[in-house]
Design a protein around this nucleic acid. Structure first.
Lengths: 255, 255
DNA sequence: CATACTTCAGTGGTCATACCAGTGGCGAAT
DNA sequence: ATTCGCCACTGGTATGACCACTGAAGTATG
């Protein structure tokens, strides 16, 4: 039983703080967006030092449950569920995640997300989705702007899927992938074709064709992967060989 | 650019610590399982206070990159990639994740994991897998022990899938689900049937039949979900109202 | 000699306090 | 009425002392 002892379940004090806040969350005493007491007050009321209180808060902040704003206060996260974006990235540095593995994960998550969206999305989602498609076509000559709407499009699908857990997982993988993408030059791949695919996906979702939406999304991502691979091959900005001094070839940031 | 500022990207000092350790990881200067300098020394060498150093360490520990052992030292995680198990659980308390959403996420992840395992698993995995199946049949009268091997079986599949990212995500969802399960009575559902299904999945994987493995896994999980739902309905041992039906749990558990 | 117990150095955990650093509002100067 | 700046409040960092846990060296005991 409880073979716990895992990573860092927090020592007494920290755990005490985490559990307290957690119970406040579960009992509804603390609502999303709400501000928690100031560290000094809270620490006094919990009978722990401010340092320990902070350890607990940081722990919860690290996993996106709390949001700390210097000079203002600490608040309960309010937006959609979201894990720490950096986690997968840092973890990748440790375990040597390969790009194809991230793509594979994303492919699975996102295709199902699209399928679910086709079954559950509501009018409000259709509107938002179509709007992003329009914006994509409009920004077809501006890669950076196009990317914004691209990301938004996928994010809306996540919401429309009705499963915040899958959406959060996808977001985690996706952002890690995005970070990796920024290292390569702003891809100027065929945006028109990409936009067309997004439109097709949108239509499938709107028509409630789950399997088709899933298939199209898979197709779309496979294409995105191959084109990014191509760029990676053309501009080997990776860091596989030796860990030579940081030759930040940060030049061309375009725009 | 970088409209970041989000959650808790760490303030200067903490970020400094995190980035430093991260670079050590990426450059390979720090290997998994290795011990990092003591807080006092490390803090001095980084020119930051021990408090700040600790904030950074805790941050990394919170996401499973570091493992802190009181009285011993802090080490780089060495096992398979693994996110903080508690995160999804606590997040569920905040965003009100529903059990069916967790099942849905698990279903998608695990079925694909099985499919991938069928394509990539190697002999060593076959052995481990079959062994767990045997153990399951042996523990068919002991739910608690059965569960151990059940979990192990699924975990081996995750490894065999060859995608540590998906495995880690699955583990996160799964453990949250497991925690939820512990609240209900040890399910005494039809273990024999369950064991049979595991064997079938094992065979499909060994035979390299990806789609079949995926299908069987889906079937298995659907069944697991429905039976757990049944228990949940039969024994509302949740914690909202008076948890009655409790066999001689004499007295109030006030504390 | 072998074993069990004690001691102790080292590491992370907690605490208290003082001070640094953003925020935002209240109030005085214009 | 508008603007500017002070200031109280909130989180962030720095110290330094002390507590709690571990593991191994050292000592007493059979």
């Amino acid at each position: 039983m409880a073979e716990n002892k895992r990573a860092n379940p927090e020592s007494y004090r920290t755990m005490q703080v985490v559990n307290h806040i957690r119970s406040l969350l579960e009992s509804g005493a603390l609502q999303p967006g709400e501000k928690i007491p100031s560290e000094r007050d809270f620490a006094r009321s919990l009978k722990v030092s401010r340092a320990s209180l902070r350890t607990g808060i940081n722990y919860l902040a690290a996993m996106g449950v709390l949001k700390v704003r210097h000079g203002v206060g600490t608040f309960v996260a309010d937006g959609p569920a979201e894990f720490d974006k950096a986690s997968l990235s840092i973890m990748g540095a440790l375990h040597g995640f390969q790009p194809w593995q991230m793509f594979e994960a994303r492919l699975i998550l996102e295709s199902h997300l699209a399928g679910l969206a086709a079954e559950r999305s509501r009018p409000e989602h259709y509107t938002a989705l179509s709007e992003e498609v329009v914006e994509m076509f409009a920004a077809i000559d501006c890669p950076s702007e196009y990317l914004v709407h691209d990301v938004l499009f996928h994010r809306i699908i996540s919401q429309a899927s009705g499963n915040p857990i899958l959406a959060a997982l996808m977001e985690t993988v996706s952002s890690a992938l995005y970070e990796d993408r920024r290292k390569t030059v702003e891809h100027s791949l065929d945006l028109r074709e990409s936009a067309e695919m997004h439109r097709a996906i949108y239509r499938a979702i709107r028509a409630g064709k789950a399997s088709e939406a899933r298939r199209l999304m898979e197709q779309h991502l496979h294409l995105a992967e191959s084109s990014q691979d191509k760029e990676r091959a053309a501009a080997p900005v990776s860091e596989p060989p030796p860990a030579r001094s940081r030759k930040s070839s940060s030049g061309t940031k375009s725009r």
